[in-house]
C-alpha cells in the first residue's frame, strides 16, 4: 500500500540510530587480522640470524609477477646473497610461500607500508655485502 513501505523504511533507518555504529576506527584501533592474512612477505631466520632460504630459486620462477629476485653467492650456491622483494608488483597471491620447499617464506600481518615513492616498496629480506641494483622492477620497466 502507498506509504506503508516508506514508513517501514523510515523505521529501519531510525532503529539504526540506537544500534552501535559499524565504523572501524582504523588509525586509532588496529584491526585484528586472522592468522592466515596475506600481507607483506617476510623470511624465517634461525637463532643465529641465518636466513632459512637455500637459494633454490623456486619462488623466483614461480612468482607470476617477477617480484622476487635472488642473487646466489658464487662460492656457496646454497646461500642467497640478497633476496629482493619488489612489493609494488606483488599481488600477495601466496604462490611463493606455498612453493618454497624449505618453508623459508611467510606472510606477516603487516599492511601499513604506504610510501610516496614506488622505489621505497622494494625491500630486501636478505641483504648480502654486495650492493645490488634494484629488483626486477627495473627490468620490467617503470
Amino acid at each position: 500500500m502507498f506509504g506503508q513501505g516508506l514508513l517501514k523504511g523510515l523505521g529501519i533507518t531510525f532503529q539504526r540510530l540506537r544500534r552501535p555504529t559499524e565504523t572501524q576506527l582504523y588509525p586509532y584501533q588496529q584491526p585484528v587480522l586472522p592468522a592466515t592474512s596475506r600481507m607483506f612477505l617476510a623470511m624465517y631466520h634461525d637463532e643465529a640470524g641465518v636466513p632459512a632460504c637455500k637459494a633454490c630459486m623456486t619462488c623466483q620462477t614461480g612468482c607470476p609477477d617477477h617480484v622476487i629476485r635472488i642473487e646466489k653467492d658464487t662460492e656457496n650456491p646454497k646461500v642467497p646473497l640478497s633476496f629482493t622483494v619488489n612489493s609494488g608488483r606483488c599481488t600477495f597471491c601466496g604462490i611463493c610461500v606455498e612453493l618454497c620447499p624449505f618453508s623459508a617464506l611467510h606472510f606477516t600481518g603487516d599492511f601499513e607500508r604506504a610510501t610516496y615513492l614506488k622505489s621505497d616498496l622494494i625491500y630486501k629480506l636478505v641483504d648480502g655485502s654486495r650492493a645490488t641494483g634494484e629488483g626486477e622492477g627495473e627490468r620490467h620497466g617503470r
Binding site: 533507518t13 555504529t21 565504523t23
Partner: peptide, 11 residues
C-alpha cells in the same frame, strides 16, 4: 546521516 547509516560521520 552518518548515524542513520550506522557510521559515525566526521571524527
Amino acid at each position: 546521516i552518518g548515524h542513520f547509516q550506522a557510521r559515525r560521520g566526521p571524527l
